[in-house]
Structure formats: C-alpha cells, structure tokens
C-alpha cells in the first residue's frame, strides 16, 4: 500500500537552515546537510530544500548544496527557490535532486510548467503554491508570500495539473508558523478536485495535526520545518502514532 509521506522542509538562506514565522522572522536552525542526513536516518520519507531568499535575490547557488546532499542522503529530495528556467532545472537534477519545485516563476510564465514536463517528465516537477484567505477566497501569493495576486488557489491548482505538474505543494500562509494545524478544508478540496498528489504545508504543531491533515485534509504528504528542527516532534514517534491511528506509513 502506498504510504503517507512525512517531509521535513529545510528552508535555506545563505547556506544555513532557517525557519520563518509567517515568512518574516528568521531563526538559525543548523547545517542543511547534517540535518538532511539526520532526518533520513530517523525515517523521513522525503526532504524538501527551499531557498527562501532565492526569488527575492535572483540567486541560483543551490547546486553545490544539492550535490553535497545527494552524496550523503539515501532518500528522495526536492529543491525549490528561484528556479525559473529549463536550464536551472536541468542543472539541479544533474546534481542529484530528484524533483524541483517552482512557484513564482510558474505564475509569471505558466508555459514553463509544460516545458519542464516535456523535457524532464511530470514525476520531477512540483508546483508550490502559497495562498492566503482574503475576503473568504484563497488567493495565490508570490515571492515568499510578499506579493499578492488575483489568482484563485483552486483555479490555479487545476491549471497546474492540466499543464502536467506531478505534484502540488500547498502552503497556507494563514497557518504557516502558527502551529495551529494545517488548512485541512482547502487541502481536502484540492485533493478531491485534482488527481495528482497534494503535499500539505503550513501549521504543523502537534502529532494530531498530522493525523488530521491525512484524514480530514486528505493530504498525500505533510511537510513541516520547525517542529522537526527544534525536536518538538520526533519523526519516529510521529510515524508510530500515525500508524497507531491506522494511517499507512513506512515504519
């Protein structure tokens, strides 16, 4: 049986792992390669590296880090942040990334999704969507959440699927950093309306939140950062408790 995935996310800035609260306040949380190896050892199913400063600073220096991670880690990982061209993606995959995640660049140029899928296949193209509820409507945001758009989350997600993306990583900006749980109703709607895997992101604070996002939220995978970095939740213990709650996980 296909299992639900637990994905620690390593937000990278200047080569270090950081985690923002509501995308703004940043705290240093350690060396990414060390953390990645530790998570793989503890039973993480996948890893995500997001260079959160990349889009803002137009920086593309992840390849060296990707190479170091690929050398040391025996589980799949996704790389995102500031990726805006076929060449960027080719380089990251060549360095050993399994998937890449694109966000702002997909909104600015949706055709990029088609181009990447044609060149590298759906299986390695993740589209990350940051959204926030405004006047009772989920609106897509860009540049690490700083720029709002008129795009509706569900309409955009559908388009992303139609253009061939293999997976959607949905971050609720209203929930991110709050530790109050994931945006389960929006997630369940995405998961029902779309036929590609949905990764839940933003709001993890307790084991119960993960249980909820896999059941009520119908998520295929759940991503979190600080609860893992600061050892508030141990991955082994989390997966055992998911298992005890009859959620299929790899133990």
């Amino acid at each position: 049986m296909l299992t639900k995935r637990i994905i620690p996310c390593l937000d990278i800035k200047n080569g270090r792992t950081v985690k923002g609260v509501n995308f703004i306040r940043l705290r240093d949380a350690g060396d990414p390669v060390e953390l990645a190896a530790r998570y793989a050892e503890e039973g993480a199913d996948e890893l995500v590296f997001l260079d959160i400063s990349a889009t803002e600073e137009k920086r593309k220096t992840l390849s060296e880090l990707v190479l170091r991670v690929a050398e040391k880690v025996n589980i799949p990982f996704t790389v995102g942040g500031g990726i805006s061209s076929v060449d960027d993606v080719g380089m990251l995959l060549k360095c050993g990334a399994d998937k890449v995640s694109i966000n702002s660049s997909a909104v600015k140029n949706p055709q990029l999704i088609n181009e990447l899928v044609a060149k590298f296949g759906s299986q390695c193209i993740v589209v990350a969507i940051d959204a926030k509820m405004i006047d009772n409507q989920w609106k897509v945001h860009l540049v690490g959440g700083k720029v709002s758009t008129e795009l509706d989350l569900f309409g955009w997600a559908k388009e992303v699927e139609e253009r061939g993306a293999g997976e959607i990583l949905f971050t609720s900006m209203d929930h991110d950093g709050t530790k109050n749980g994931f945006a389960n109703s929006a997630l369940a709607k995405l998961s029902t309306e779309l036929n590609i895997p949905i990764i839940a992101s933003g709001g993890a604070g307790s084991v119960q939140h993960f249980i909820d996002t896999f059941t009520t939220g119908k998520a295929d995978a759940a991503l979190a950062a600080s609860v893992f970095h600061f050892k508030e939740i141990e991955i082994k213990e989390l997966k055992q408790q998911l298992f005890n709650n009859e959620i299929p996980v790899r133990l």
């Binding site: 049986m1 299992t3 639900k4 995935r5 199913d45 299986q123 036929n195 590609i196 895997p197 790899r250």
Partner: peptide, 30 residues
C-alpha cells in the same frame, strides 16, 4: 492519483535480487 509518488510495499519476492529483503518492505516509487 497519477503519478504514484512515494513509498509502497513490495511483495511476492522471488529473485536473488531480494536476498535478505523482507516481504512487504517499502521502496520509493515515482
């Protein structure tokens, strides 16, 4: 959902390739 992405179990193992690998072991698929 398509693609299948994630860890699934492998069963009915009958090859030298799986020597020492337990039934229902998890492998990563995309």
């Amino acid at each position: 959902k398509v693609p299948q992405i994630g860890w699934n179990q492998i069963t009915n193992l009958s090859s030298d390739l799986f020597k020492g690998v337990k039934e229902n072991e998890y492998m990563y698929l995309v």
